[in-house]
Structure formats: structure tokens, C-alpha cells
């Protein structure tokens, strides 16, 4: 059972890493600014999930607090960026 769990953890770390690479590609390529903000938001969310997987694989609950903080800061920064996209260019 433990080896199965270990393989599942390796698999999800691999998948999350691949998803982060996809998000980074979109972040670099994104034709418009809103694409980049969306990619950054998704990337931040996947980082939070990665922290949870690390918490499971190290059997340590400190990672929970880290994930909570990542979720909080991600929300605030996304809101700030979206507001900037909406209002920032009115004053040109």
C-alpha cells in the first residue's frame, strides 16, 4: 500500500509540475495582459496544490499553513492585478 501511495505521490508531483510548465508557457506567450494574469493566478493555485502534496509526502502538517498563506496571497494579488487591468489604463 505504501509503495502504491509513493508512486501516486510521484505521479501527482509530475502532473503538477507539467501543469506549472503549461501555465508558465502561457504566461510567457500570452498575447494579452489578461492572459498573463489568468496564467499567474492558475500557476499560484497549482503551487498551493503542490504544497499540499508535499505535506502528504512528508507527513507534516506545517505545509497546511503554508498552503493557506499561499491561497490568501494569491487571491489578493490576483484581485490587485485585475483591478489594475481595469482601471490602470484609463489614465494614459
Amino acid at each position: 500500500m505504501i509503495t502504491l501511495l509513493q508512486y501516486a505521490l510521484y505521479f501527482s508531483q509530475f502532473c503538477l509540475l507539467l501543469a506549472m510548465i503549461f501555465c508558465t508557457l502561457r504566461l510567457l506567450r500570452g498575447p494579452t495582459a489578461q492572459d498573463r494574469v489568468l496564467a499567474l493566478d492558475t500557476l499560484w493555485m497549482i503551487v498551493m496544490l503542490f504544497t499540499l502534496v508535499l505535506g502528504i509526502s512528508f507527513a507534516d502538517q506545517v505545509y497546511f499553513e503554508l498552503a493557506l498563506l499561499i491561497a490568501l496571497t494569491g487571491f489578493v494579488s490576483t484581485i490587485a492585478l485585475a483591478k489594475f487591468l481595469m482601471r490602470g489604463e484609463i489614465i494614459e
Binding site: M1, I2, L4, L5, A8, L9, F11, S12, F14, C15, L16, L18, A19, M20, F22, C23, L25, R26, L38, A39, T42, I46, L49, V53, I56
Partner: peptide, 24 residues
């Protein structure tokens, strides 16, 4: 306990990958 945890990990990571693929 192990089987649901493994299953949830697999499903979650696949869905995350599909979402990022859609973004790309």
C-alpha cells in the same frame, strides 16, 4: 484509507493537468 487517498490524488492531478492544458 490508502485506496481513496491514492484515487483522489490521481484524479486531482489529472484534472489539474487537463485544466492547465486547456489554458495552454
Amino acid at each position: 484509507l490508502g485506496i481513496p487517498v491514492v484515487f483522489l490524488l490521481l484524479a486531482g492531478s489529472l484534472v489539474t493537468l487537463i485544466g492547465a492544458l486547456g489554458l495552454l
